[in-house]
Every structure is written in C-alpha cells, then in structure tokens.
C-alpha cells in the first residue's frame, strides 16, 4: 500500500518542490553557523542559540505545511476507491502509518544535519534541546495534519491549508504569554512548552481527539 501512496504523493513535480525546499533548508543551516562563528567569540554563543531557535522555528513551519500537503494528497480519488477492496480502517491505518513515517523521515535528517553542521563548522555542541524540540515539532505536524484531514476530505480540500497558515501566524506573531494561554486550548504554537513534562501527553490527547473526529467523518461523509 505504501508504494502506491508514495507514487501518488511524490509525483515527479512534487519531488522537485520537495528537493528545492530541502536544499534551501540545508543552505540556511550551513550559512547560519558560519555567520555565527565569524562574530566576536564572546557573542558567538548567544548568536548561535538565537539562530538555532530560528532554524528550528522555520523547520517546524515547513514540516507542518509538508505534512498537510501529504494529507491532502492522500485523499486522491484512487485511494478512496481502494476503500471498497481493503476496507476503510485498513486504508485509514495505512495512511496514518505513511504520514507518521514521512514526518519522521523528512524531519529527522534535517534536524540531524542542522546539528551536525553546527558541530562540524563551529566546533560547538548544539546548545538547544534538539531531541525535545524535534519531538514537539513532529507531534505538532501530526496534530495539525490530523485536524486538517476532515477539511482535506471536504468538497474544498484546499481549506485544509488554513490550519498550517493559522499555525504559522500564531507561532510567529504571538507573544509567549499569549501563546501559552492558547496552548491550553490547542496544544501547538509554543516553543517554551518543551520544558513542561506533561506537554507531550497533552498533545497526544489532542491527537487522539483529532483521530476520533476523523473516524466520525469517515462514517458520515461521502468520499467524493
């Protein structure tokens, strides 16, 4: 099943777009640590921390858009017709596995490269909690795409992009205090939350809620 999903989601045109995005991200990752190491050594660490946060921020935004894009493509009419053969739940589970697999496969190499480059070019260990940020970003991408999924199934699938757009706006322009309050309503958008132990559990609850919503839509909405 995954082979077919891959052929549908990663068509030649989309592969070009994905490659350009990846190449751009990698260029940013190489340029930023080099720029930081050229600074006065006493400020280099501070610059590096803020730059790393900026890259992590950019990476999470790109991930949310990419995953929503994948979710929209997984509503291809061909995949919908396969429901008749394999059953709704098998197709749905395969989609979830495919999505999770690709979120991790797209995010982890970029995250590893980002930190590897910092270590290689500046000789300094990454100063932010890379693993925790990666975990939260992957969950964010999964959470946003889960909630965008019912819209991707609707008559106007492009409406699904509202979720990543909203995510970008809220994550970019809101203050820390405000986004912390927002986090209690919808657990995304907040980078400082990584210091709280229950944050991941809270996100998982929301992902489960999203999955329940999908199952509700699966029962009631026509697929075309």
């Amino acid at each position: 099943m995954m082979i077919l999903f891959e052929k549908i989601v990663f068509s030649p045109k989309k592969r070009v777009v994905f490659s350009i995005l990846m190449a751009s991200m990698m260029s940013v990752m190489i340029i930023i640590p080099l720029r930081a190491s050229a600074w006065d050594p006493s400020y280099a660490d501070l610059t590096l921390i803020s730059d790393q946060k900026m890259i992590a921020h950019l990476l999470s935004l790109i991930m949310v858009f990419l995953t929503t894009w994948i979710v929209m493509d997984l509503e291809h009419p061909l995949i919908v017709t396969l429901n008749a053969y394999f059953g709704f739940w098998r197709i749905h589970l395969s989609k979830l596995i495919f999505l999770l697999m690709w979120i991790v496969m797209l995010y982890l190499p970029l995250s590893l490269i980002q930190n590897g480059i910092i270590l290689f070019l500046t000789g300094r260990m990454p100063t932010i909690d890379v693993f925790n940020i990666a975990l939260h970003d992957i969950f964010d991408a999964f959470l946003i795409s889960t909630f965008a999924h019912p819209l991707a199934k609707s008559k106007h699938p492009s409406l699904a992009l509202l979720f990543p757009i909203l995510y970008t706006i809220l994550r970019t322009i809101t203050s820390n205090d405000f986004s912390m309050k927002l986090y209690t309503i919808f657990p995304a958008f907040q980078q400082e939350i990584i210091h709280y132990e229950l944050a991941i559990a809270y996100k998982l609850c929301y992902i489960s809620l999203g999955l329940l919503l999908i199952s509700h839509f699966l029962k009631r909405r026509p697929p075309f």
Partner: peptide, 24 residues
C-alpha cells in the same frame, strides 16, 4: 472485497501504465 470503477476515473498521471498495473 469489492473492485470499484467510478464514473470519473482518476489515476496518478505520471506513472507508466505497466508500472501502475504491477503496483496494483
């Protein structure tokens, strides 16, 4: 197990026919 051919057939466009059939 039901095989279904919809009225409007939509297939992934940029795959060679043989490759598509073998995948299916």
């Amino acid at each position: 197990k039901m095989g279904y051919v919809p009225e409007k057939v939509v297939l992934p466009p940029f795959i060679p026919v043989m490759e598509y059939l073998l995948t299916m």
